[in-house]
Design a protein around this nucleic acid. Structure first.
Lengths: 197, 197
DNA sequence: TCATTACCAAACATATTGTTCTGTTTTAGT
DNA sequence: ACTAAAACAGAACAATATGTTTGGTAATGA
């Protein structure tokens, strides 16, 4: 890809991100983004059709990357371990968040972070589905699989949101334990979930 | 209160609600609301300082009413019953939603209903807190009370969202069972919770 | 009845939006 | 290094949205 494209694209993302840190999404105008990114008016609209698409692309890139990284992990290593959460893929996700690559924490800690947590949840569903559904962990449940996937995804996102609202006082390990404590009991075969090695 | 005030106020709410049924909140302009409500420009701004306040007031009224109604129910009757969900306050809430007073379903089924589910969750927390926390049901839990309240509230809202996304095929009883199946196991004293009569 | 209050219409300056134009700079390929 | 293609900037544009002011009308409640 053209260097210029990447450069302005990242300039827009950076400007957008920094603006989101100080004001609501609704209250940010395209003009402000243009000014903050220091680009031409035409250039912005050449990259993003609308402000909503900008948001979508930003979130897709950020969360997509995190989730894909987690999904690419060796399945034997990061599994749904019983009791102790030391090997959970969720712990990995929290640590990844804590490292704050791509300034993702600025977004998740912004005024109306529900916007981003929603995208987070969307991407997370893919992970949950492949992580558990394919292993047949949902098979014994009385609950519909889709309901469970949604519930687990939402619960994790809520855990992250709760963590952020308290300025991440707790350690990733603690949050993982809290989260697992809420979903482990509802997975019939959840308490065992052996790794296949 | 002046009849005229109430009249225009409801006209604005009605216009806003019907607009939300067809397009996103962000894409609705104040001008459209004014036109749809058939009121003067000055009148709108006399009632609501901004579009966000309009949304807030609308949600506050709707969800506040529903939650307050549920909280005003006789505590002995609607309690956290074990297993069967026939007396659960949550079942009452779902039935209330199904009746579709105040066109609340139009809002919850609109394009970006996350907006409303968020308000719903906010009001729901009050209910959860008084319903369980005051009975000491959280006392034995390893989880922080605030975490639990948030988790339960979010889980119920997610259950409602899931229900709506499937066009409410299931009965309120089924949804209540699904929901209770996810949160009952994590409440230490949850399985008993006797009514105090 | 009468003072109050809500309403409306019009106009206003200002800001935002999305597009179109022209011209410049940078890039990638040869 | 040369060139064609591209991405960029800047300005201008109409259309629309915002929030406020003014002056006048009509409904309300006491």
């Amino acid at each position: 890809m053209d260097r210029r494209q990447k450069k302005t694209r990242e300039a827009i993302f950076a400007a957008f991100t920094s603006l989101l840190a100080e004001k609501n999404y609704n209250q940010i105008s395209v003009q402000e983004i243009i000014d903050a990114a220091n680009i031409g008016r035409t250039t912005f609209y050449a990259h993003f059709e609308t402000k909503d698409y900008l948001l979508r692309d930003l979130c897709e890139g950020l969360f997509g990357h995190i989730i894909d990284t987690a999904m690419g992990l060796p399945h034997g290593h990061y599994h749904y371990s019983c009791g102790s959460a030391t090997d959970s893929v969720f712990l990995h996700l929290l640590r990844h968040l804590q490292e704050n690559d791509n300034h993702i924490l600025e977004l998740l800690s912004s005024k109306n972070n529900d916007l981003f947590l929603r995208y987070f949840k969307g991407n997370l569903k893919k992970l949950i589905r492949t992580q558990y559904a394919k292993k047949g962990q949902f098979r014994n449940s009385k609950l519909p699989e889709d309901y469970l996937v949604n519930h687990i995804s939402a619960s994790f996102v809520e855990a992250v949101g709760w963590w952020l609202s308290r300025n991440m006082q707790e350690s990733p390990e603690e949050i993982t334990e809290y989260f697992l404590a809420t979903i482990e009991p509802i997975l019939p075969s959840g308490l065992i979930s052996p790794s296949e090695d």
